[in-house]
Simulated assay, not measured.
Amino acid sequence: MNINLVQQRLLNDFQRGFPLMPQPFAQIASDLDTTTDEVLDTLRHLSQQGVVSRVGPVFQPNRVGVSTLAAMSVPEPELEKVAAQVSSFEEVNHNYEREHDLNLWFVLTAPDQTALDACIRRMESKTGYDVIVLPMLKEYHIDLGFRMQLDGCARLHEYSENLADTGADQEVCATAENQNSDLIAAIQLGLPLVERPFFEVGRALGLSEEAVIRRIGAMQAEGIIKRMGVVVRHHELGYRSNAMMVLDVPDDRVEAVGWRLSAVDCVTLCYQRPRHLPEWPYNLFCMIHGKDRDDVLACIDDVINELQLADLQRAVLFSKRRFKQRGAVYRKR
């Protein structure tokens, strides 16, 4: 897709550090030397095109509700039907076909472990297939900010990193997660693209604009919100190939290898998950995106050679079809 300079900057520079102030888009417009209307119109257009998933929070996994990666092995003739059945569950936010005997991969999110377990049982009953559950054990790099090679000089803005600017305090932080269920439900799929989004959110909840900003700042301080900003879809931006590289790393090496992988530019996610023997011997997962398949394979070759990982059993699961992709629903509205 052809994008102009304002679009480039919005997509690349504002994936985190969204300004927590009454008129955040005016602040962004000032930084871009443009108008608030142009910023909002551009974000609305990019959202309609599917390039922007939302503008809002990315929550820390398992701090709001619980989530897990899961997989199924589905015969090819049944795959589309079963994928549609899996996608029909509200708890599923991502659902992909990947190149492997375990060929259907999806992410589930629920309010608590009991609800998650019940969802998996219902899914197995509905589809007739076993679900392999692979919850995250440790994250090494899971920010989900997607750095793009657009102009070669992008920077990240961090208006909200200084808690003094948000008014957040420890008393609010200590109770943020428990007291903000309605607020989480209101913002989990994105802020309204209006001049004063926090005012609109607060009006719907019976909260002041200041209270909304303060509570979001508190959730950031607590680490409940991992980042706040523009959430992009890589495929629509031309990064049409992605693979999940998985490794079987000895337990005494997994920590060191995980941190080294997380520092590689082309690795966008890296986390430890349990093995599920005998069909799944791998315990370290990383995601790699590229313009095409060769781009991804070149990155993998570089990673294996530079980090001296050739001795480890591994598999590369390229994404084939995207059946569902949206933000996780942590709380029902």
Score class of each variant (00 low, 15 high):
Ser125Phe: 10
Ile132Pro: 00
Ser160Pro: 00
Ala154Leu: 05
Met72Ser: 06
Glu177Tyr: 01
Arg155Thr: 15
Phe89Thr: 01
Gly152Arg: 11
Leu134Trp: 01
Lys138Trp: 02
His141Asp: 09
Asp169Tyr: 09
Leu108Arg: 00
Met123Thr: 03
Gln85Cys: 09
Asp117Leu: 10
Glu124Pro: 02
Gln149Arg: 14
Asp101Met: 08
Leu108Trp: 00
Asp117Met: 07
Tyr129Lys: 08
Glu99Met: 13
Thr166Ile: 07
His157Gly: 04
Met72Leu: 11
Asn103Pro: 01
Met72Asn: 05
Val92Ala: 09
Val92Phe: 01
Cys119Met: 10
Glu78Ala: 14
Val86Leu: 10
Pro75Ala: 10
Thr109Pro: 03
Gln85Glu: 15
Glu139Gln: 14
Ile120Glu: 01
Ser87Pro: 02
Arg121Asp: 15
Ala168Tyr: 04
Tyr140Phe: 15
Ala176Trp: 03
Glu158Leu: 13
Pro75Cys: 08
Asn93Ala: 06
Pro75Gly: 11
Met148Arg: 14
Glu161Gly: 09
Gln113Asn: 11
Cys153Leu: 11
Asn103Tyr: 03
Arg121Gln: 14
Phe89Leu: 10
Ala71Pro: 00
Ala174Pro: 00
His100Lys: 10
Met148Pro: 02
Gly152Thr: 12
Thr166Asp: 07
Leu134His: 06
Thr175Ala: 10
Cys153Ser: 14
Leu116Ser: 06
Val74Ala: 07
Asn95Val: 08
His100Leu: 07
Asp117Arg: 12
Glu158Thr: 13
Val74Arg: 02
Ala84His: 13
Thr114Met: 10
Gln85Ser: 11
Ile132Phe: 08
Leu163Gly: 06
Val86Cys: 06
Ala71Asp: 05
Leu134Phe: 01
Gly128Phe: 09
Val107Cys: 06
Lys81His: 14
Ser88Trp: 04
His141Thr: 02
Pro77Lys: 09
Gly167Asp: 05
Asp143Cys: 10
Gly167Cys: 07
Ser73Trp: 05
Glu90Trp: 08
Val107Pro: 00
Glu91Ala: 15
His157Pro: 01
Cys119Ile: 12
Ala154Trp: 03
Cys119Val: 15
Gly128Ser: 11
Arg155Tyr: 08
Ile120Thr: 04
